[in-house]
Design a binder for these strands. Structure first.
Lengths: 216, 216, 216, 216
DNA sequence: CATGAATGAGCGTTCATTCAT
DNA sequence: AATGAATGAACGCTCATTCAT
């Protein structure tokens, strides 16, 4: 019994240590993947960054690709937990909130996000399974949201699909310099202001004389 | 004389053939770079795609890297020739036109653009020399344009820098699905409509009741 | 403590094994370099000679060139340790001794010496850094020695520089057939006799009637 | 007939042109072989040095190796023509003369000689066929010469084989700096003086008191 | 005869992975 | 569990040689 107990706590402590090591490896790998791309990052690089032997990696992951997949999965899990609350969305302010939350999530592990986007750019499987699958949740919500607002005479009769994509674009575009490592992640307040500006421009445009140039 | 003439035309024909071959190589390489990334594309892949011997590549380019650089340069040259006309811009419609022209340019060689973006994502030098250097031309024009319109009471008092970035973002975002190979390039008319929609949404927003939610 | 001790001896044993492996590689490489030249020897050849995988070489040396340099350095180190005692030289017999010692050193690793000479023959850097730098020590000693002996009316008034070079030449020449692999290395006694003969011929000449033909 | 005549003279002129071109190729190749070794010299290098197309080489030689062999053969032929007169040798002065002649021959095409020695150093076939075969003529003559002089009480009772080798060594050694490209070829008079010094040192030694140290 | 273009064979080297300790 | 050592497979690239013109 005592043995079992010791063993159990030992196991747990060991498991925690293992989990921490896995995280260290993933963090270091994500950093390198983000900076140089998955293909150009060697297992030697990763091991050196964690300061362990190269072959030790294989005690924690079956291979290099699985490290990437673990990173992609972790980040996807994070995003999913945000998207789960999308269905509860109602109205403008809640969209600002979720944009802000998404930004926070994507930027909380910039390297993970950057690695995800970089790999999705050149790998169809990654794109479909990790990006598009998630983006569609938002897209569908947005399209339905826009359509209902148009019907309620709140929105001009824009094309919902295109508009949804443009909204996504502003969102991504606003983050691009941070994701690409050209700018430091913004503070919470700056980030919230950014989210609001994005939504507001989409909502009201920048012109004081709307419609004047329509079809012009 | 006749000999010289014959020799000259011979040279020209040969040079044309060489140029065509170089283009074939670049096209095939760009396609592979776009699909799998530069690092994961082997010279063997490229040679096989052009159906020539692997070593034959080296008669046309000094190395794999130079094939990429030739692709990046060619696409940059194309973009530069568009940006040269930016200074002549005046007003809304001309901005729609240049957006349309840029879209046409970027999409006329989707693989080139895709390879460029993919490499810029993980290579600071490429990002700075090939992307940022060009984007700044547009950014500066846009910021000045927005500022002057605000002063003329045409635009609401938005933050020019952020707004310029958001405009860029909508532009990039609108192209993303095509660039990433998820959608076929649009026809000229569709493309023009897309450009107009982008500019119009930025201009007027999507809400029928502007300002109602501002600061709310 | 015990752990540290175990670890220490483990390290030492491992290091010894690594050193032995490095030596094996260098020996095999020197043999091939001597027989076929550096440029014509492939890393595949070397690996096969040591019976290891080709890529295993790179765990012991950064590259092919460094294997050669290690060989040249080791042999140079050996020669330097002999030359260090040159300054103590005094008189004829000690010169015989150092000639003998040098011969012993050069012949103890014939392949190393042969590889060194072969590479020096076609590589200016190797010639200057590994051969001339060392030969000058002997040359300068010899010139001074000859000059002093002439002043002491022990030697005929020969030209010291040329004579020194000729002495070197006899030395090299006497070894040439062994270095080139046409003859087996001589036993210690034969070698000593050779050294003595060389010095003696230089000293006394082969003629019984010296001077008879001078200027004739 | 006229056609034949024209053809003949044409052939002759063409043949001369071909011979000249062959010589140009051999000279350029010998220069590169001497400087960098045969294995490290590329056909591209050779062609560039002669300023012709790389494939044009193959109109004059079946391959790279044959260029080397032509060089070795030409130099060997030159040496043979000197050695032919060795049998006529009689006495001291004639030996000085042949040493001088040999020196002149070897140095008249330094690159050829240097390429020959460099290749012989790492190629047994070349060593045997081009060097040893010729050296033996001299060796045998020298041994017989020394033996006869000893019998005639002209020479001390040295070991003929070793002495012959030492004489060879002084000869080679005296030329080494020139052959290796560290010194410019000497003028005719300097060269003759060198030859004489070599023979004289061998003959009389450098000591004023011969025999004093014998056996010491 | 001269050559630009093409190429198979092979080079030195890298790297993700395995294995013995 | 941790790792140094080993390695097959593959990489980017070179080069002597061939061939069509």
């Amino acid at each position: 019994m005592a043995e079992r107990l010791t063993s159990m706590t030992g196991e747990t402590r060991r498991e925690r240590r293992i989990q921490r090591q896995r995280q260290d490896i993933m963090d270091a790998a994500a950093n390198l993947f983000a900076a140089n791309g998955y293909a150009s990052t060697t297992t030697k690089d990763i091991a050196a960054a964690v300061d362990i032997g190269e072959s030790t990696l294989y005690g924690y992951f079956p291979g290099k690709r699985e490290i990437l997949l673990a990173i992609l999965n972790e980040q996807s899990r994070r995003i999913d937990s945000i998207l789960a609350s999308v269905s509860n969305l109602d109205g403008y302010q809640s969209y600002v909130d979720i944009v802000d939350l998404l930004m926070e999530t994507l930027l909380s592990k910039v390297d993970y996000t950057r690695a995800l986007i970089g790999e999705a750019w050149i790998n169809d499987r990654v794109l479909n399974e990790y990006v598009i699958a998630r983006a569609q949740v938002l897209t569908q919500f947005l399209e339905a949201f826009i359509t209902s607002r148009i019907e309620a005479d709140d929105f001009r009769p824009v094309e919902p699909r295109l508009t949804a994509r443009i909204i996504h674009a502003t969102f991504i575009g606003a983050l691009l310099p941070v994701l690409r490592g050209m700018q430091p992640p913004p503070e919470a307040m700056q980030r919230h202001a950014l989210a609001e500006s994005v939504v507001q421009i989409i909502s009201d445009g920048i012109s004081l004389h709307p419609g004047r140039r329509a079809r012009a």
